[in-house]
Design a protein around this nucleic acid. Structure first.
Lengths: 160, 160
DNA sequence: GGTCAATTATTTGTATACAAACAATATCTG
DNA sequence: CAGATATTGTTTGTATACAAATAATTGACC
């Protein structure tokens, strides 16, 4: 199974052999943006591999957990809580609703908004998914020692 | 009940106020996957803000730099060098070619491949963009002290 | 009350990102 | 050499991610 998460896009093999120098030491693979993109890719691959059976993407999982823990939120507020803009959260919520994990209710106090709540199925899936997500976090951080992990997380938080 | 303090655009405002406990201490905003996604988002926003005038996305920039420094590469090999799968690199290269920054040549030795090279315009844009990208890297890492920056990068590299 | 600005949700368009399937070509194997 | 296998590039479909424009509604202000 393992499928070697990077068979098709392993990236950066046979690295910088025979490259032209003279670029002031600029190496694109060493830049923080490139490394962040790669680390995010690796995490997403681990997430899909380990959460795949439940058919939840990282963003769908985040949105579902936020709806469950917040109890009832509007769509835009959910977007702010999960760092997704209105166009993005719209699609994420639409797919969660289509799967019966989330339901929308009209808010008589504000007819613009749709209040979101988790269904029983959504709550149950969330419970299972949190246990799985804990393992995904551990797998993602596995290359770091137990001492390095909290250090890395504290530095990463500063970059947001 | 939520305490609705200010509604800003970014995300994750008014954090976890009034959330239901009992999830074993799992806080989705503190997980490495969420933080990586947010850090990558912030970098992408800085990139667009500072590179916007040259109309290059992070991936287009990475691909162009790799073509320039490698001299001549096939499309799939470029994808491996930049961590993009064949479907993704196809679109990136197509847009670079459409803008006249890259040109394709047939390889008589292998009729499957198209050899990619930077045009004069692509080379000139790459020169300017590298200077800009250096500033983007600095801006991204700016929240960290000069001592923390290499430490963070070394830890981040281990996660790939 | 009436006007205007702000907010909510949606839609459109563009750009990654990847799975899956495909045709054309190259390479390996017997 | 012939057949199996692998690689290259493309296409389709789905899912973020965001800019920009939009309609409906709310709130603020006069």
């Amino acid at each position: 199974m393992t499928k070697a998460a990077g068979m098709r896009a392993p990236a950066c093999d046979e690295a910088a052999a025979g490259e032209t120098p003279g670029w002031g030491g600029y190496v694109v693979e060493a830049q923080v943006g490139f490394l962040l993109r790669r680390a995010h890719q690796r995490h997403a691959a681990l997430f899909q591999e380990m959460m795949g059976a439940r058919d939840l993407t990282p963003t769908q999982f985040t949105a579902l957990i936020k709806i469950v823990t917040c109890g009832a939120v509007t769509q835009n507020r959910l977007g702010r809580l999960t760092a997704m803009d209105p166009a993005t959260i719209q699609g994420v919520v639409r797919r969660l609703v289509a799967r019966g994990l989330v339901e929308r209710a009209f808010d008589p106090a504000d007819r613009r908004t749709h209040v979101l709540r988790a269904t029983a199925a959504g709550l149950e899936l969330a419970r299972q998914a949190v246990a799985c997500a804990t393992e995904i976090t551990a797998a993602t951080l596995e290359p770091l020692s137990l001492a390095e992990q909290p250090l890395f997380l504290s530095l990463l938080k500063k970059l947001i």
